[in-house]
């Protein structure tokens, strides 16, 4: 089983990814973002996106009701269904779902984010949270009947509310329950770069302990991404590939070794 994470950037070559996937023997699940579409839609609808930075330094999008509407339109609607449509045109019988559908991805609502505002320590709550369980019965039902799941946020919380969440966290939970050997992330870069402004500085190989080190020095969103990859290895992944989603044959190239291949180090602490 393969988990394919399609980033939400504007330049991601979805057509190319789906074309390559149509030739795949191994079964796979697609998880995708749509942040570029969401931001464009927010701008066109004159909806301003609120970013909150918690006292512990992590910044995230403040997910109020309007933001959840945006997620439904951009992620669950436009992006999810255009990916499903492309799959159908390439012989992949895809079924698109959010975490709310059939309680596919269940999560726990954040109890609150501590922020500093008007020189006061405050707690703010929104419709966001962390995934902790996948409806494996539904997922297996689809897979066993040759349907390809195409999953995206929002996920569902304990009271049945749609909540925003991070796709990277969803992949960690998905991988934990699925024991998927390989996870491929398609991003708008050739892979992990030694120098972020130098595309030629792709690091071709890393192991999971390198990731742990990197995580300590990283900040903000990149820190969170590294943390999610770190967890994948804790849950038994053997290979994570960070590959360029913009090129002509993103999947084929990734499987040929282009991008950053992260593998379990033979003497890592998890063996």
């Amino acid at each position: 089983m393969l988990i394919i994470k399609i980033g939400g950037g504007k330049e991601i070559n979805i057509r190319g990814i789906i074309k390559d996937l149509s030739g795949m023997k191994e079964q796979f699940i697609i998880v995708h973002g749509a942040n570029a579409l969401r931001d464009e839609l927010a701008e066109r609808l004159a909806i301003s996106k609120k970013i909150v930075t918690s006292v512990s330094g992590y910044s995230s999008v403040y997910s109020d009701e309007t933001m959840i509407d945006l997620l439904f339109m951009a992620y669950a609607g436009l992006r999810n269904k255009r990916i499903v449509e492309l799959c159908q045109q390439n012989g992949i019988n895809a079924v698109g779902m959010t975490g709310v559908d059939g309680k596919m991805i269940q999560g726990k609502r954040n109890t609150g984010i501590r922020i500093r505002e008007d020189e006061k320590l405050k707690i703010i709550r929104d419709f966001s949270g962390k995934p902790f369980h996948i409806n494996m019965e539904l997922l297996h039902l689809l897979l066993e009947h040759a349907y390809t799941p195409v999953l995206t946020i929002p996920i569902i919380d304990e009271q049945g509310h749609a909540i925003n969440s991070e796709n990277d966290d969803i992949i960690v939970v998905l991988q934990k329950e699925f024991k998927a050997g390989t996870v491929i992330h398609f991003i708008e870069a050739p892979g992990f770069l030694e120098k972020s402004d130098d595309p030629a500085s792709v690091i071709s190989h890393l192991n999971d302990s390198d990731i742990a080190l990197w995580e300590e020095q990283a900040q903000g969103r990149f820190k969170r991404k590294l943390h999610a990859i770190h967890k994948l290895f804790e849950n038994g992944t053997s290979t994570v590939i960070i590959a360029d989603g913009r090129i002509e044959h993103p999947v084929n190239k990734a499987l040929e070794g282009y991008g950053t291949i992260i593998q379990r180090s033979r003497y890592g602490k998890y063996n």
Binding site: S54, S60, R114
Partner: peptide, 11 residues
Amino acid sequence: EAPREEEDWGE
């Protein structure tokens, strides 16, 4: 009473 701080960072 304020909710316990999340074990790791906020969302």
